[in-house]
Design a protein around this nucleic acid. Structure first.
Lengths: 258, 258
DNA sequence: CTAAACCCTCACGTAACGTGAGGTGCAATA
DNA sequence: TATTGCACCTCACGTTACGTGAGGGTTTAG
């Protein structure tokens, strides 16, 4: 074979002059400040300085910087970049694997947050209220619900909610606010659950519950658990809420012979 | 209707005593330091202090804190929380909408990063190298490729790569490293592309290209564009790489009559 | 030889607190 | 009553990866 000609531009052997920081910055797309920073924290210390203190980056510095940029592109923090390039800390595959895990965790969190925000935006569309109080109320109630219902149940409830009018929602609220005090008073007065007036109330109660749960036993159970645990907090937001004792009392009313 | 009985525990009218910071912290699950911070930045300034300077939070402070917590749960930064609760800045729906947009943007970025990391992890599995140099090389080549190939093309290439052995990949690299200098020398010596020795080389060249592109014209085109723009950078990582002039020369060789 | 361009070293700001350090207030106990 | 111990106070630095000046030397082109 013949003698090797020059590949493209220069050979490695013809030592290129060291770069000043501004030059290196514009070649790599980094800022001068970033290079100063890398110097400070030990990620990339230029191997030369001029007598007056100007940084000079030679070929191996430039190569190291390319590696730094590669690793940063993968989202690896500077401190770990430094450890990797210095051969300390963990092995590359370990670092990558751990970062994938962390990233997935982070993404999962963000996705859950995005779902919550989407749901919230839907509510805001239907309710068309601009008050922060209302906004926070919706947030509190929905976050409380997320603790007691599964994702599928929540979806069912969202669908049902979006299919009814805002006016009807107010009617439902008003109904509860009318019925619950009556029940409380009846309980305080030891009224027989089988009595006609309680039976009338029980009928309305059952209808309201049916409408909300859609007849789903699991949802009804979750609602009761939620009111049991979050009663006071929900009361602040919603107005009148049923207590576990009321559920028991109403249970007797439902079981009473007609 | 009869007189209202007491709902659950207390009535709002019986003013509850203001809370000290530690008490409020333990009730809300926040840290004392966080409450200090909220005070500092004006998100929640307690409306009372004792003579000695101890913070006292009254009922309305507590309610405001609940709102703060709700908004923070939705990922809204403290400064915007403050503006919302103080009625300054944007309206709640605007804030929510903007945050949804920001969040989706962020999630998209994270997802792209996750994909890159997954691909990288795959490479690391097949190549089983633990050196940072190799790691960075893979990163650089794959990120360069992402600029020139579409997502589908990249997937095709990934599949093809994972279906061959590491040994074969080395063979391919070696073939290029043997052929390219020969072509360069032939070009420098003005050898006729139709000459037998160049025709022999052209045959091997074509086979190598075919294997990589799978016969896909688009991929072949993207490869040439990539080498044209990223030539020097890739050369540092891969060794010998073809130049546009070589593609022209080889084109003549392919077109030459046999 | 001078002015522009480039370089240097501080040093503060970012988001949302964690983590002391060093000192005061307050209720209960010895 | 004196002392203990706990809760509270105000600084103030650390975290991430730089951005953005301030104030002052150096190099280079005209």
């Amino acid at each position: 074979m013949a003698q090797n000609t020059i590949p493209t531009s220069q050979k490695k052997s013809m030592t290129e002059p060291p770069l000043k920081v501004g030059e290196l910055a514009s070649r790599t797309g980094l800022s001068v400040r970033a290079l100063h920073h890398y110097d400070e924290i030990g990620v990339l210390k230029p191997s030369l300085r001029t007598q007056s203190g100007h940084r000079l980056y030679n070929q191996s510095d430039v190569e190291r910087l390319q590696q730094v940029q590669s690793l940063r592109l993968m989202g690896i923090p500077l401190e770990e970049v430094r450890q990797l390039l210095d051969g300390a800390g963990m092995s590359p595959p370990e670092v990558i694997a751990l970062h994938i895990a962390k990233l997935h965790e982070h993404i999962a969190l963000q996705n859950r947050l995005a779902e919550r925000l989407q749901g919230l935006a839907m509510h805001l569309d239907t309710v068309e209220t601009a008050s922060i109080d209302d906004l926070c109320q919706i947030i509190q109630v929905t976050t409380a619900m997320e603790k007691y219902f599964t994702a599928e149940q929540l979806e069912v409830l969202r669908d049902r909610r979006s299919s009814i009018t805002e006016e009807h929602m107010h009617e439902v609220r008003d109904s509860w606010n009318e019925i619950i005090p009556k029940v409380r008073n009846a309980m305080a007065a030891n009224v027989d659950p089988a009595s006609p007036e309680i039976q009338a109330i029980a009928k309305r109660w059952k209808a309201l519950v049916e409408e909300f749960t859609g007849g789903d036993r699991k949802i009804a159970q979750a609602v009761m658990t939620m009111y049991q645990n979050e009663g006071p907090r929900l009361q602040e937001q919603l107005g009148e809420v049923p207590t576990p004792e009321m559920f028991v009392y109403m249970g007797k009313a439902f079981a009473a012979p007609k």
